[in-house]
Design a protein around this nucleic acid. Structure first.
Length: 928
RNA sequence: ACCCCGGUGGCGGAAUCGGUAGACGCGCUGGACUUAAAAUCCAGUCUGCAGUAAUGCGGGUACGGGUUCAACUCCCGUCUGGGGUACCA
């Protein structure tokens, strides 16, 4: 009986489907376990062998947990809204709903080949109205909420209104605009529009005018993390700053909790680092400097310039101030003499695109003519404008300390501003030194203090004098939440006379209307603005919001919907989310570090605050799978000819390098016939061979269409079977590591499965398994394997688990063991890795129920108990011999045995030993 | 520029807490079976030296130092590959 994988795999996939083997109930006595994959965006290109890596890992773990007695939730769905489908529609005239559907069907087929244990009854698609109804609903919850800084949580904005009515906003400073201050009386006097405007500055989902990343080519706004080096992440188009009306999420209010939450979840250090860098918390002070009045507009001595600094200890080293080109006060403080120069400079800054600013960081700036006074020594400090100070961070103004800050130093040098040295020998006059360890000089009351201490002393003094205050700042900005795009969730919002009104929950979902042709609306509006009837169809009157939500909206909460996917009364029943709770294991790539993984954490916290769920971190543990690289094949064409030369001879010619499709290369040898048939232009190509073969060059690079190095999992499964494919992907190396794909190596794993099969059935002899009583040696092999597989699986070390199976098989082959009592438990161990072949053999052993529900074998230490060990014996740390010693031998006995050993005596050369290090069960080291 | 992660045979990688470096697999070499091939099986495979051999001795985990009885593992510095951030005061 032969191992016919394609027959076996199809049969069991069919059976599992028919018997609903993967259906998961929300009602179970067993402990729960939630294993989640980052759901894919169904792109038109389909899957290559790199994509399923994480899915296989999670599938193995889900199956393992199930065997271990857990009720395991392991769902899959599609992140179906997004730019590429829309771009494809524009380019090819195919509706995004149609192309997305096709792509999903294709994905599904590819996934099904691999034999995953997803409960497909729970499939979700973010573009499904039954799903995005709840995305819109959550948006409304955020819209109706504000972040109470006293309780540090989201609360209904209706509560805030009650407070305003009673006592104004003194206790709740406005996060959107800190200059908004009012009493209860004033509040009562505002009309509805004014009140709505004020509340908008508090809402967690809010609309405002702001500088946004505008991409002309895509006709949309992009979030910061969708912009890479001044161009769009998708497509690489230029991005400029533009002021537009946009929706935002007030994620900055959650900065501290997002930071704090990292301590309670298992993410890799690298991931946590990325998130906390992105949040960018810094401690410092805001300090106000009084202006020196001048004969321009700045006549009042009351005016103060407030700066943010992390180094208040350097306040005596301030030689100039710099404000951002967008700073509100520029007009007021500029002197008549400098007016022209300042205007010219602002014009110059505006003319520079984001890209130019990034590419050439030129030192530029202009003097305003104004001065501020150092609050401690009254020194006059000139105020400059420069683009290196950002309007959006801190107060948009800095105090420049050239001896301690590199940028300030360069600026001072460039404009010949005299530099004050407050750190003595730590400053060499050539470059700034940002040390905190120098003893301060030229620093008034701070003289003689170490900078670290002076930081505290100076802030205390500033606070005492009322000219400064401790201040925490974050780099993170509020997240832009609207896109001028078609293929996304419409907002449940209507505009009336410039005021945004939410739709009632009963109006949801706001269905995405059909659109014949997708093209941008006027003046930065989205394609939906081209549908006037729809725009005017709001149930509360006014005009509908024409932009749509960004890609991360649907993915911010999808893990909750899987728990209760068909509920049309609520996004997820509270009882159900209480049962499943957090995602126990989340597997996906690192590329979502500062996007999806931050947004979903924020949404979870908001939903928790508002009492809709019972946990405030979505993912308990995150594993980042590495990328699988492509192994490209290269051929060399003699320049200007149609002649191709084998790699070993290419240096004798002047050649051009071309990629050749990996599927027509065996190892490094090109299938010349397949190549000449591949394209008309190669039909009469000629070849210079080595040893009768055309040998290709090779290079490791990203797997992608343009390198012709894409390996389709379908082909691998067809040739070797899903079980081999699954195990080989795991065998390649640690899941978290990037690694190259090598189709050649798969043979080894395939041989393993075939050989494993032969423990049960032989092609010639037929059944070879038997019911004989196993020996102790055989039990030892089994239990050693149980122990190792369990340990390796638990720590996601799937590559070593596969090798453990191989070692076990080699041992059993050596022992000529075909005994059912050994083989049957082994099948269960192997099931998570290779479910099809194990199910087949399980049934052939006479079992009637599925191996999916088998009991996981219990490790019994008694089979591994040893009385002796072959100890490695070193002399001065160098291994010299091994001696078999009883494990329970006391130190004295071990010393006696070791010191009397011939080999050891030889190496001791008659010298006395200083001591003997004996690590029980490990080794012995004699020190002389 | 700053921050993070990595660097081990021809290749993918193993060594889980500082305790016999190179497990397992690929590839390669030789052999068995075969008319032949495939498949399968057996043996060898970090490196230098000595030996017919069993084996013995030395070197070796990017490089240079250090800690330790003992370092792939910990510390300092350098080189190098990858990722993140991008004037954040």
């Amino acid at each position: 009986m032969e191992y016919k994988f394609s027959h076996i795999e199809k049969k069991w996939q069919q059976t599992w489907k028919e018997t609903n083997a993967y259906k998961v109930s929300n009602d179970s006595d067993r402990p729960k376990y939630y294993v989640l994959d980052m759901f894919p965006y169904p792109s038109g290109a389909g899957l290559h062998v790199g994509h399923p890596l994480g899915y296989i890992a999670s599938d193995i773990f889900a199956r393992y947990k199930r065997l271990k007695g857990f009720n395991v939730l392991h769902p899959m769905g599609y992140d179906a809204f997004g730019l590429p489908a829309e771009q494809y529609a524009i380019d090819h005239g195919i509706h995004p709903a149609v192309s997305t559907d096709n792509n999903i069907n294709n994905f599904r087929q590819q996934l099904d080949n691999i034999g995953f244990c997803y409960d497909w009854d729970r499939e979700i698609r973010t573009s499904d109205p039954g799903y995005y109804k709840w995305t819109q609903w959550i948006f409304l919850q955020l819209f109706h909420s504000f972040f109470n800084r006293q309780t540090k949580k989201a609360e209904p904005i209706a509560e805030l209104v009650k407070v305003f009515e009673k006592e104004g906003n003194a206790a709740h400073p406005c996060p959107g605009d800190s200059s908004i201050k009012f009493t209860a009386q004033l509040w009562a006097g505002f009309d509805q529009a004014q009140q709505m405007d004020i509340l908008m500055e508090y809402r967690l989902a809010f609309c405002g005018y702001g500088e946004v990343n505008w991409c002309e080519a895509l006709g949309t706004v992009l979030a910061n993390d969708e912009v890479i080096n001044g161009v769009s992440e998708r497509g690489g188009f230029p991005v400029v700053k533009k002021k537009l009306r946009q929706w935002y999420l007030r994620i900055t209010e959650y900065a501290d909790r997002l930071l704090e939450g990292l301590e309670r979840i298992e993410f890799s250090d690298a991931m946590k680092e990325m998130q906390s860098n992105w949040i960018g918390k810094s401690y410092g002070a805001e300090i106000s400097f009084a202006f020196k009045p001048h004969d321009g507009k700045l006549t009042s001595a009351e005016a103060k310039l407030t700066v943010y600094t992390t180094r208040p200890d350097t306040i005596f080293g301030v030689d100039f101030m710099v404000i951002a080109p967008e700073h509100d006060w520029i007009e007021t403080i500029t002197t008549p003499d400098q007016k022209q120069a300042v205007e010219d400079y602002i014009a110059y800054v505006k003319s520079r695109s984001e890209r130019e600013r990034m590419a050439e960081k030129k030192i530029s700036g202009v003097f305003t003519g104004a001065y501020v006074l150092n609050p401690f020594d009254g020194r006059e400090i000139p105020v400059w404008i420069s683009e290196y100070v950002l309007a959006g961070y801190g107060t948009g103004a800095i105090m420049a300390v050239p001896c301690g800050d590199e940028r300030d130093h360069k600026f001072a040098r460039h404009f010949n501003i005299p530099i004050t040295n407050i750190i003595g020998g730590h400053y060499n006059g050539e470059e700034a030194n940002p040390t905190k360890d120098a003893i301060l000089e030229n620093s008034g009351f701070l003289n003689g203090l170490v900078m670290r201490e002076a930081m505290v002393v100076s802030i205390d003094k500033l606070e005492e004098l009322g000219i400064g205050v401790r201040k925490v700042n974050y780099k993170m900005r509020d997240a832009a939440f609207s896109r001028q795009r078609y293929w996304g969730e419409p907002f449940p919002i209507a505009w009336k006379e410039g005021v945004a009104y939410p739709l009632a929950e009963s109006e949801l979902p706001v269905a995405l209307p059909d659109l014949e042709e997708i093209k941008p609306g006027v003046e930065g509006e989205g394609p939906l603005s081209n549908l006037p009837e729809w725009i005017k169809s709001s149930p509360i009157g006014g005009e509908r919001e024409s932009s749509t939500m960004p890609g991360y909206a649907g993915s911010s909460w999808y893990f909750l919907r899987y728990m209760d996917p068909h509920n049309d009364g609520t996004f997820c029943d509270r009882k159900v989310s209480d049962y499943w709770g957090q995602v126990d294991l989340y597997i996906g790539g690192t590329e979502h570090a500062v996007g999806h993984l931050l947004y979903s954490r924020m949404w979870t916290k908001a939903l928790y605050d508002l009492g809709h769920i019972g946990f405030d971190e979505p993912f308990k543990k995150l594993v980042n799978q590495g990328k699988i690289g492509g192994d490209s094949r290269l051929i060399y064409r003699v320049r200007g000819t149609n002649e191709f030369v084998s790699v070993g001879l290419k240096d004798q010619y002047e050649t051009d390098e071309l990629h050749v499709d990996v599927t027509i290369v065996d190892g490094l040898e090109l299938d010349v016939e397949a190549f000449t048939n591949s394209r008309a232009e190669y039909a009469n190509a000629t070849f210079v061979l080595e040893d009768g073969k055309y040998i290709c060059g090779s290079r490791l690079e990203k797997m992608g269409k343009r390198y012709f190095n894409v390996v389709n999992p379908d082909d691998i499964v067809a040739k070797f079977g899903a079980d081999t494919f699954r195990m080989y992907e795991m065998f390649l190396g640690p899941v978290e590591q990037d690694k190259p794909w090598d189709t050649k190596g798969i043979e080894g794993v395939h041989r393993f499965i075939k050989k494993f099969w032969r423990l049960f059935y032989d092609e010639v002899k037929g059944q070879v398994w038997n019911t004989e009583q196993p020996t102790d040696a055989e039990f030892k092999v089994l239990h050693r394997t149980i122990k190792k597989i369990e340990e390796d699986t638990e720590r996601f070390s799937f590559n070593t688990a596969v090798s453990t199976f191989m070692i076990c098989l080699n041992d059993l082959t050596d022992l000529k063991c075909n005994k059912k009592d050994i083989l049957q438990p082994l099948l269960v161990l192997l099931t998570p890795y290779a479910p099809h072949v194990t199910e087949e053999l399980w049934q052939l052993l006479g079992n009637t129920s599925s191996v999916l529900n088998a009991a996981y074998p219990t490790f019994e230490p008694k089979y591994l108990v040893e009385s002796n060990k072959e100890y490695p014996i070193s002399v001065n740390g160098k291994l010299r011999t091994t001696i078999n010693i009883a494990l329970d031998a006391p130190q004295e006995d071990v010393e006696r045995i070791v010191l009397s050993n011939d080999v050891i005596q030889k190496w001791m050369e008659g010298k006395p030993h200083k001591r003997v290090i004996y690590v029980k069960g490990k080794m012995v080291n004699v020190v002389i």
